[in-house]
């Protein structure tokens, strides 16, 4: 193990480490802690200049209520869910299919198709912006959840295909072969042999895509305009313009917007990290 396990070093070093660990954590999360604390501070503290001290009283409930009552943030959150959940389902469905095709069959264009999916994943969004916006306008899905869903599904399919293909390749190929010998059709092999084994991959992708799409800001500003479509990222930014200097509200709004992916991460941590660190160990 590297570095030397702390249990094997001298006592002073060990104690120093145990003290340093929480201190480092607090420093690392300082911006977050600051915002969390501000969200529980009464507005009067801020006007009185008490920005970082102990809040004069607990005003968390009042701030969070104010955010939900006086701003459309509830709508924005709902919009985010309406965009994110169908995208997760769509991207996973499509990439199960593409990943299966690229992992199981050998055909000449295989590597080229794979290459396209991987490379497409890395392009700057701006090179897609004008045509995608134009396409959405012409198809009548501009400023609708569907418009954002379609784009996100298509784009996320690139990353998901890479992931699914690698996952299916690592399954024992003998399973597919023996099914073929028994005359099982290719579709049934996919549906009944491979899909049941893909649960961990599906779980990992579900949390990752959820987080990516929930946190998207660029496409939200390009493809959405109004309160009826705007997800919470873009919504929060526009609220920030209205809540000038009302930092307790901005903070509460930020916490609310950050919460769903954070919860998702905590609930599915193992899958999340497995997905994110794909390829970080082999090679």
């Amino acid at each position: 193990m590297f570095p030397t396990p702390i249990a094997k070093v001298s006592a002073p070093v060990r104690i120093a480490y145990k003290v340093l660990l929480p201190v480092a954590l607090i420093i690392w999360l300082l911006p977050l802690l600051g915002v969390a604390m501000t969200s529980m501070r009464p507005g009067s503290d801020l006007t009185a200049g008490n920005y970082f001290g102990i809040p004069s009283r607990f005003a968390g409930i009042e701030n969070y209520t104010a955010v939900f009552r006086d701003s459309p943030i509830g709508w924005y959150i709902l919009n985010s869910f309406k965009i994110t959940i169908p995208t997760v389902v769509g991207a996973i469905l499509l990439s199960c299919l593409t990943g299966f095709a690229l992992a199981i069959y050998r055909f000449r264009a295989n590597i080229i198709v794979f290459f396209l999916f991987v490379a497409g994943n890395f392009v700057p969004f701006q090179i897609l912006m004008i045509p995608v916006r134009d396409l959405s306008l012409r198809a009548g899905v501009y400023d609708t959840a569907l418009g954002l869903i379609l784009f996100h599904v298509a784009f996320q399919t690139g990353f998901c295909t890479l992931f699914m293909r690698n996952f299916i390749s690592s399954l024992p190929f003998a399973l597919v072969e023996s099914a073929r010998v028994e005359g099982v059709s290719e579709w049934k092999i996919f549906r009944h042999v491979v899909i049941p084994l893909m649960r961990p991959a599906i779980a990992a992708l579900a949390v990752l895509v959820f987080t990516f799409v929930w946190n998207d800001y660029f496409w939200a500003t390009v493809l959405a305009q109004g309160q009826n479509t705007m997800p919470v990222t873009a919504g929060l930014y526009s609220l920030n313009g209205q809540w000038i200097a009302a930092w307790q509200l901005v903070s509460a709004g930020s916490i609310v917007a950050a919460l769903p992916p954070v919860l998702m991460f905590f609930l599915m941590q193992r899958h999340f990290i497995a997905g994110l660190t794909l390829g970080a160990t082999k090679g």
Binding site: L94, A101, I127, L128, I130, L135, T157
Partner: peptide, 28 residues
Amino acid sequence: QRRLAPWLFLAPGMLMFLVYVIIPIFQS
């Protein structure tokens, strides 16, 4: 079956990816 299957499996995902990612690059 085995020659066509990969393309049928690829079709929906590839179509979406072409329309929303690959073709827009050239259009831009």
